[in-house]
């Protein structure tokens, strides 16, 4: 469950990295803003004179969040990254961190410092099979994530625009020689990543039922870890990395107190993501699927 959310966010990191070689640290904040926008929209729509069904409210809220996040990412790229396109790599990286802090603070001003809770639009039902518990919300999250990821993979691999994205990832210069407007493709990549982030934000929020202006930071770091684990720049890798990381975390959190004789509890969950990051960077920096294709030129 958690894994599929990581996968959605990791895709945003990996797509941008694939094309620009840039780690967009503000991506986690886009997830948070997605969640916040949904929250605001639900509050707004619930007070509507003509009563809407809960499903319609959620749908409208999510669509708004996707639009807001897409525009936000478009602006982030224009303002923060495009002017630095030809600068040394360190410069946009620092800007990315700055952007992340800026967005957190803007969110804090707009939505305040307190934890926001998610109104219960749907009643949660728990199923259990084989000793594992899963709620209807979680099942829903997994299904949505799989649908979105499949749609994205199909687009990237089998459409004209997806082909242009892959070509641009390989060489922006040569792609422009084919008539591809590289700036357009880069904007599109940011917008797509942000749309996924918005959905991820809603899903996380729906599961934990709380949102906070700082929630994007840790989530972003973990999704970044997932992208590195799968092999950054590789889309299938990002999905695999996300799901693996989610599993490692859940299993780790579940058994850590047994391992340490109760000394460490499940609140040490976050440790696992970063253990994985360190492990990958030491043992296999290219990630699981980050192998270079044979290149004879």
């Amino acid at each position: 469950m958690l894994g599929s959310v990581y996968a959605l966010v990791a895709l945003g990191y990996t797509m941008v990295y694939g094309i620009l070689g840039l780690i967009n640290f503000a991506h986690g904040e886009v997830v948070m803003i997605g969640a916040m926008v949904v929250l605001t929209m639900i509050g707004f729509l619930s007070g509507f004179p003509a009563p809407l069904s809960n499903g319609a409210i959620l749908l409208f809220a999510v669509i708004t969040a996707i639009l807001v996040c897409s525009m936000l990412a478009f602006l982030i790229e224009r303002v923060a990254y495009r002017p630095l396109r030809n600068a040394p790599r360190l410069a946009p990286l620092i800007t990315a961190i700055g952007m992340s802090i800026l967005l957190q603070n803007i969110a804090m001003i707009i939505w305040g410092r307190q934890y926001k809770t998610f109104p219960d639009l749907f009643s949660t039902v728990s199923y259990s099979f084989g000793g594992a518990n899963i709620t209807n919300v979680q099942v829903f999250i997994i299904i949505i994530s799989i649908l979105i990821m499949s749609a994205l993979l199909l687009t990237i691999n089998f459409t004209r625009i997806g082909r242009a994205m892959r070509a641009t990832a390989e060489s922006p210069q040569i792609a422009s020689l084919m008539g591809v407007n590289v700036n357009y493709i880069i904007s599109l990549t940011f917008v797509l990543g942000a749309a996924l982030a918005a959905v991820a934000g809603v899903l996380v929020f729906a599961n934990y039922s709380v949102a906070h202006y700082s929630m994007g930071f840790m989530l972003g770091l973990k999704a970044f870890t997932a992208a590195v684990l799968g092999g950054i720049g590789n889309m299938a890798g990002a999905m695999l990395g996300g799901i693996l990381l989610g599993l490692i975390e859940s299993i780790g959190a579940g058994y850590i107190s047994d391992f340490t004789g109760g000394f460490m509890g499940s609140h040490y969950q976050d440790v696992f993501a970063f253990l994985v990051l360190i492990g990958v960077l030491v043992l296999r920096p290219t990630g699981i699927m980050g192998e270079r294709v044979a290149d004879r030129t």
Partner: peptide, 22 residues
């Protein structure tokens, strides 16, 4: 371009399709 500049990770037919992008 000099050094051919093909897209090494795309297939041959995808490369050709890229030429007809517009």
């Amino acid at each position: 371009p000099e050094g051919r500049g093909i897209f090494g990770r795309l297939t041959v037919s995808e490369n050709i399709l890229m030429g007809a992008f517009l």
